[in-house]
Simulated scan of single mutants.
Amino acid sequence: MAMDGKELVAKLAKLSQVQSIKNIPQLTHALFPGTHCPLMGAAMAVGGINDSLIVVVGTDECTYYTKSMTVHSEKFGGIGGRCVSVVLDDHDVTFGSAEKVQEAFKEIIEEYRPQCVFLVTTCVIEIIGDDFDAIAEGLSELYGIPVLPVHTEHFKCEDHLPGLERTISVCAAMMEPRACDNSVNLLGQRMGDFATTELYAMLQKAGIKIGLQLPCGCTVDDIKNAAAAKVNIVVNDIALPLAQKMQEKFGTPYVYFNKFVIP
């Protein structure tokens, strides 16, 4: 039962009364299991980009969570698959994580030889203020592959959807100008096989070529060639920022075709 304003105020203590954490009254109760964080959304998105690698930088809790989530996924390839962790310790949190990430990256490139890396930060990175946009740019120049920063701090949002949105939005940096091939891109399908949908059947019946399918199944080359499409079909809000970027960058128009639209 929720407390009213007077009850909440009555439970508050003056700062002079607080000697330890036990003196701070609990105003709300934690929800179990609660919502997923953006880190999960980032992992879900990268799972659909076949020849890319997700590198999660954070404390052991966050890196363990991501690895345990992906280790049983066929999309990631099991224990030695496309999910890699860079685990920070107290020293890294105090003095910065850039050096450890750069050292780890050398090993990662030699072992995995990825076509693209999504460099995913977690809450502690955002709190200590390491500039992972600059780190990613430097690593991209050094190794000659796209290294794309994805910020997944949970203290600024409610669930995992921002992780999906930010991961597919940053893919715009990989896209290159292409001659139009009259295809359409499908943006924003989070789960399932697009080939089983009514929209897919309609496009096939009309003889329309389907290009990029992000994040439900594609390659890095598909992303690089995405600007060849004549139009983007957005089927979820998470893809609107990407569609808008593509319209600005390449002039590619988009239509918003959400789950409530009648084909």
Rank of each mutant, 00 (worst) to 15 (best):
G34S: 15
A227S: 13
K249F: 04
V71K: 15
N182C: 05
G188Y: 09
A179M: 10
D4N: 15
F194E: 01
K205L: 08
S20Q: 11
N182I: 01
A228V: 00
E165V: 01
F76A: 10
N185I: 00
Q189S: 04
D90C: 00
Q204D: 13
G48V: 09
G144S: 09
C180A: 06
T28H: 02
E176R: 09
S97V: 07
Q244Y: 03
T63D: 12
H72V: 14
S20R: 10
L142A: 15
K205E: 14
A173P: 01
K11F: 00
T252M: 08
F32A: 08
L203Q: 06
A104F: 10
G41V: 14
I24A: 09
Q204Y: 07
P149G: 13
R113V: 12
E158H: 09
E176T: 06
Q19L: 13
T219H: 02
H91Q: 06
F105Q: 02
K259C: 12
F76G: 05
R166G: 08
P146K: 08
A30W: 08
T152G: 03
D130V: 10
N23P: 05
S68E: 15
D131M: 13
K11N: 04
L187F: 12
K259D: 12
T35Q: 11
V170W: 12
S20L: 06
S140Y: 15
I49P: 01
A243H: 04
T197I: 01
D159C: 08
L15D: 01
D133H: 15
P177Q: 04
N236K: 03
G251P: 05
D159I: 00
G77K: 06
L12W: 04
H160G: 00
N236C: 01
L187E: 05
E74A: 12
T121I: 15
E198P: 05
F257Y: 14
R113G: 05
K6G: 00
E107H: 10
S16V: 01
K106Y: 11
L119V: 14
A195E: 11
I223W: 06
A45C: 02
C171N: 08
Y64W: 14
E126L: 09
K209V: 04
G251C: 05
M44A: 02
P38K: 02
T252R: 01
I262W: 05
M174E: 10
A45P: 03
A229F: 03
K209D: 14
Y143A: 06
K224H: 07
F76H: 11
H151T: 12
T35Y: 09
N50H: 11
R190Y: 07
V9S: 00
M1Q: 03
F260H: 13
H91K: 05
G138W: 05
C116D: 04
S73G: 10
Q26M: 15
A179N: 10
L148Y: 09
P33I: 14
